[in-house]
Design a protein around this nucleic acid. Sequence first.
RNA 1: GCGGCGUUGGUAAACCGGUUAAUACGCCACCCUUUCACGGUGGAAUAACGGGUUCGAUUCCCGUACGCCGUACCA
Length: 506
Amino acid sequence: MSEVRVRFAPSPTGGLHIGGLRTVLYNYLFAKQHQGTFVLRIEDTDQTRYVEGAEEYIHKCLEWCGLQADESALQGGPFGPYRQSERKEMYRQYAEQLVATGHAYYAFDTPEELMKMREDFKTSDNPSPQYGLATRNRMKNSLSLSPEETKHLLASGVAHVIRIKMGNEEKISFNDMIRGEVHFDTRLVDDKVLLKADGMPTYHLAVVVDDYLMKITHAFRGEEWLPSAPVHLLLWKYLGWSDNMPRYAHLPLILGSDGSKLSKRHGSKYGFPIFAMNWTNPKTGEKEAGFAERGFLPAALLNVLALLGWNDGTEQELFSLDELIQKFDLSRVSHSGAVFDFEKAKWFNHQYLQMGSAAALVPQVKPFFEANGIIPDDAYLSTVIGLIRERCHLLPDFVDQGHFFFVAPMEIDRESLLKKWKPEHARFFEQLATHWSTAENNGTATELEQNFEMMATEQGLKKGELMLPLRIMLVGGKFGPGVFDIVQTIGTVEAANRILATLKGL
RNA sequence: GCGGCGUUGGUAAACCGGUUAAUACGCCACCCUUUCACGGUGGAAUAACGGGUUCGAUUCCCGUACGCCGUACCA
């Protein structure tokens, strides 16, 4: 029995979206469940698409949500390097080996010639002709050229690629861990480029070689890879590594509200973030919003993602990471794509905001106050959090719901106040303010409330008709926790000041 | 076009041949609360279509339709 080894293999071309994050999660859960190893491999074989900072960004995201890799370019490991660009020299020999065994060939076609071929062979019946069984003999490659010509071209250093020669085995199949048996007709698959003219491997070669060299036992990837699975299957076979081939699991896609695959580009079109963390494209300067900055707790986001495509068959919806590790089961992963529901995600975050102590939330909440120019005291913030957490869904909600605990409201809802206002209220509130302006009169919420009610009765007023005006004077509007909890928290002196200030402006 | 994969309320989904087809989010109403929330109760809302197989299909099989993904010297 061999050790379980899985890998997440992103290309550093942009932000990490929630589809990728979920792939990370499933990898992680599976690895931990089997006491295995989670490898992070950077697939940066396309030098033209390299984006500055993207790799660091990916690490930052994994760190934020606590899904650290066991082996990666950052921390190293026994199977490094973990960046494909640094493994460049390893790939050529395998490509050459495939040529030598007749499973691949050199192709000298220029990009222009390829374009011309696609143009020439294009028909309404076949809008995208392939470089493959039907066309390879009419192209410029070591199959159509004489050995001498090929040798000559190679010797003269003409740019060339190596392509896989798809076989005639017709049917090929494999057992996907999620979908079961999947069949392909190899004659319908094109001769994919394995080694590019710049000497870099394409994804197809690199993924197979590296999965082999890194002893990957289970390969999880998005469903968009299913159509190229036959190429990979054949590569494993042609390279003579069939016995070591990992088990594949093609994950269902996460869809946008329009039902199509989440695009790295149009993040903003959904009206909610699709990236784990804020991402700015260094080339274009375009900014994309992230879940972290939007105010999600990592545990909540992970929970959402875990359930998008998987459930344990019970009605349980809230799972800790440890529980997920224990209960995650690939055979219960659904086969169809799932639309991401931001409202439901907010609900999950709300649930997580209610868990644990208020004090534990302080480090999460504090930065959002600071961003609004409020530097809160930890202990005070903690009691505020306890008072308002149940009406918060996202972290910034704490500022909306709690700013008045720190600063007097800039504006008050006069309309609502006046609606409940009677001339005799003024005298009452003046008296109340005088009473409260002494710190000694502070007390618990219940004490304050009893006292308040007494004063009201003395003046022939009902407590009820005074509550809303008082609230509005203290917080500025019709929202917030119990009025006397607020008074107790901000103190009677501050409350008195706010009453007086409002009275003055009435 | 071809290939692959899908199709249970608006969304996520349970059920793996026999159910009044769960549940959660969202939505609506009511209760609680002289605020806003939380909570509680109730409600509207679903098996794409057509054939089989079967005593019996949402469940199994085959078509059709629709959707998505792929069809690059991108991953």
